[in-house]
Each structure stands twice: as structure tokens, then as C-alpha cells.
Nucleic acid binder design. Sequence first.
RNA 1: GCCGCGUUGGUCAAGGGGUUAAGACGCCUCCCUUUCACGGAGGAAUCACGGGUUCGAAUCCCGUACGUGGUACCA
Length: 515
Amino acid sequence: MKKVRVRFAPSPTGGLHLGGVRTALYNYLFAKKHNGDFVLRVEDTDQNRYVEGAEQYIIDCLTWCGILPDEGPHHEGEYGPYRQSERKDVYRKYAEELVKKGHAYYAFDTPEEIESLREKLKSEGKSNLQYGYHVRNDMRNSLTLPAEETEALLKINFPHVIRIKIEANEFVSFRDMIRGDIQMDTSSVDDKVLIKADGMPTYHLAVVVDDYLMKITHAFRGEEWLPSAPVHVLLWKYLGLQHHMPEWAHFPLILKPDGNGKLSKRDGERLGFPVFAMQWKDPNTGDLLKGFKELGFLPEAFINLLAVLGWNDGTEQEIFTIDELIEKFSIERVHSSGAKFDFEKAKWFNHEWIKKLPVTNYQSSVKKLLQESSVTIDDENKLEKILQLVKDRCTLLTDFVLQSSFFFKFPDTIDITAVKPKWDDKKNQFFVELIRAYEFMNQWQHDELEKEFKEIAAANQIKSGELMLPLRIMLVGGKFGPGVFHIAELLEKEETIKRIEHGLSLLIKNHKVAL
RNA sequence: GCCGCGUUGGUCAAGGGGUUAAGACGCCUCCCUUUCACGGAGGAAUCACGGGUUCGAAUCCCGUACGUGGUACCA
């Protein structure tokens, strides 16, 4: 059996969005599952759409996701080069071979001529122009021109394209690993351009030539390619390479959560969630678009949520490690219908992964976030304990900032309004005694702190529950956070007492004013 | 318009002739927790429609509707 080889073939035109990452992921999973190769091929044949930095950005995203291809421009293998722009010369040969065989022809119509013909047909209320069997004989091409004239035009390098010549009224059929047998009438597909006037191939030619040359065994791509699949299948056939043709699978689209249509860059902005894996700054427009990474997603969670958006293993399992995915993934279980993206569920996945992973896995990321909000971390050990203590409360990595800043610095605000209305002299007395008792404590530990607290409460005949919230407010600043004695323990003696004293001073002042 | 692909709760989805039609997210209620979470127990909510085939259809077939993709010298 042939070695499995798959490819992810993005065009470097901007940010890498959800759908793209998922396509890469499914390719990766399939390759790893079958001990195959995963190739990155950069489809940069459209020079007008070239965007500076996009290729490196794609590699960075795949690296962050942990699904970096085995071969590609970043890591040359034996099938390079991996940028189609650098393979320009190989494609023409195949196109000319097709011309010789009568499966393609030179066309000298200018884009303007075709455009005006389209306009004309449109104004006559006819359907879209298809440059195909019913019009090709009225156009300026090597099929209609005398051979000498074609020769002459080619000799002076008159701008031309090479088009595939698709025979009408035939059926092309092929098997899609997800959708089963698919059959299309060739009359509905037009004579696609294979080589553009600038000498570059179009996607259609490049994809089959490269898949052949790179020995790709399985070609997986988005559903938007399904309508042009017959062209590709025909190309394999016309080239006499049909025995080398890869197996096909077309993945379903990822749709907008609200209305309809496939998810696009704009939707993220509009609906308040990212559509890119990582932040992307467009060098041309200067636009900065946030990514899942910057929002506080873990790569493990991102991969996981993408994997199960359109695939599942048939059990109730939803949380998968990358290794489990490799083991369980199968193309046949990929859905054929599109799925709307649900950001709420995406966050749930991240929450699950924050809880599941050892905090040391993301400690450095959280540390960076804390430092960015001017919290100084001096003790990694302490940080680890804190993260462990608060992780259940964090859905995104960025939530750790709120949940753990107060351990390192005095709260910015103390929400005394939460306790002020019920404040009285008895409580006052309690906290004065508590400070004194805490000052004399030797064992600064959770259980001891709680025991002391409850004893003093009992002695003052106050329910300890009524005193917990005030203590929390004093230590944390607000109504959130883990168990209050856990906080006190980590804050340590000096800081805890300092905060109680400060809180008390605010309340006394406030209390008197209220009287 | 034409061509392709699709359609199970609001969303992700299991199930592919006989099921009380799983599960998850979100929402609601309760328990736990004298904060917020975590955790636990419940609840509301679904087979697009119409015809067939069949003893029996969410499941197979045909239509319709709707959605979606393509229809570029873009990928």
C-alpha cells in the first residue's frame, strides 16, 4: 500500500480562520493516524492577492495549534519547492501536453472582451456566460483560428490563456469519502482557464499537477471546491494520470452563528468573537483582528472544539487530546452538512481544558498576562498554587487576571457597599479581636485560620456566616474568589492583617458617617 | 437563473426501518457552598413539509420548501 500523503494548501492572502485550521487539522489527524506525511503547500499563484507575512503567519498558527506539517516551505522535503509561485515552469508543460492531446486550447480573448460579452448576455436576460462548449466556437482561440494565425500570435507572445476543453454531455463521476458517489454533467462546467495570461497556473491546474508530483494520496478540502471537482477529475483523466488520482473528501463549511452563510472575517467583529487562530494584522489596511490565542484560548481546547465541529467518534466523548483524536479520527464520520459556529460552546471547551490540564502547562502564559496588567510575580511556586486554586473559575486564560491579581497586589477597589448596610459595632469588635488573635498565630494555615475565626465569632455571638463576606471583601475587594481562608493562607500573615485593618478603617469611617 | 451539496431541540449532535429519539452547550429550578465558581439532581425544547414503499418511516424513494456553495485569467 502506498504511503499516505496529504496536504494543506492555503493561499497566503490573510489571516487563517477557523475553517482553514480545521481543514489543516483533519489533514493532520488523517496523516498521523495512517503514519503518513502531512505537507504544507502554499498556493500563491494569484500575484494580485499576495500579502506580505501571510505565509509565516500560517506557519505560526499551525505551530501554536501543534499541527505543523512535516514538509513545506518551512521544512523542505524531497518534493519541493512548496510554493507554487516557485514551481511556475512545471505547469505550462502539462498544459501544453493537454493542448497537444486536444484537451485544451489557446484562447486570445481579452478579459475585457469576455466581460462585455457577459454584460451583453446579462442585459438580454440570459443566464451567465459560460466559456464552454456552446460559445467556444465563436471566440478567438486556437479552435477557431487558422493554425498559422495561432502560431503567429504565440510567436509574438500575444497575451493568451490556456483553457481546458470540456466535452459536453458527458458524466463525470467520482467518489467522495464523506458524500459517496457524486455525478455531474459536463455541460454545466465551463472551459476553465488553466494557465493565466501572466503565465501562472490557476488553482485547477496547479492542484492536480502538484498533487501528482507530490504523490498526494488523499485530497481533502472545503466543500466550496465540490462544484469544480469535475474539472480536476477530468484533468487527471486527460493527463492520463487517473491511476494516480488521490481519493477525495470535501469537508462541510463552518457557518455564521446567526444568519446564514459561511463564517467570514467580518462576522467575528460583528458578533464579538475571533474567527482567526491568532491575531492578524493586515499590512495593507493596518486592520488588527484578534485571534483565539490572544483571547485566552488554549491550543488544546481550540483544536478540540474544531475537531468536533463536524466530526465525532460516535460515543459521548467530547473532550479529546490530540493523541486521542489521532487514534479515533475517521473521514467517514465527518459530517456532510455545515455547522454553525457556537462561541459559547467554544468557551466551554476552553474551560474544560483549563480544569483538565496541569496549571504548569499555561502558567507562563498567565504570568505574562498578569505582568501586562502590571502585577509583579516574584514567586513561581506561589503562582502555581494560586492558579490551582482559582482555575475552576476561569473560562479564558485572561480570566486569571481578575481571579489572581489580588493575591499579588492590594485590591484596586474595595467594594464596601456589599457589607456596609449590615455593619455594626459588634462586627467591628469582632474584627478588632480577630486582628489581635491572628497577630499571635503561629500556624498560618487554612484550618487554624478558620478555627480561630469561628471561635471568636462564637464568643461574640455572631454567626460566622455573617462575617465571611466582610472578610472576603477586605481581602479580595469584591464578591468573588476561592475560599476566604485559602486566600488568607496564601496572602500570609502580614498582608492579611494589613488588609483587614484597612478594610476596617474604611468601614468605621463609613459607619460613623452613616450614623 | 443554472449546477452541486445539505436539512434531528436555539446551537453542536447520536441514532440509518420497530428506541420513552442519547448526550453536550446555552437557559431555568433545586442541592452543595454563608462569595463567585466547580460538582450533583431535575426541567423546558426536536426528526422542514407533502406524497409514496412498508404491518411499521426520523431512518428507504420521489417531489416541494428552505439553507448553503459554485457559476472569475480568486483560491
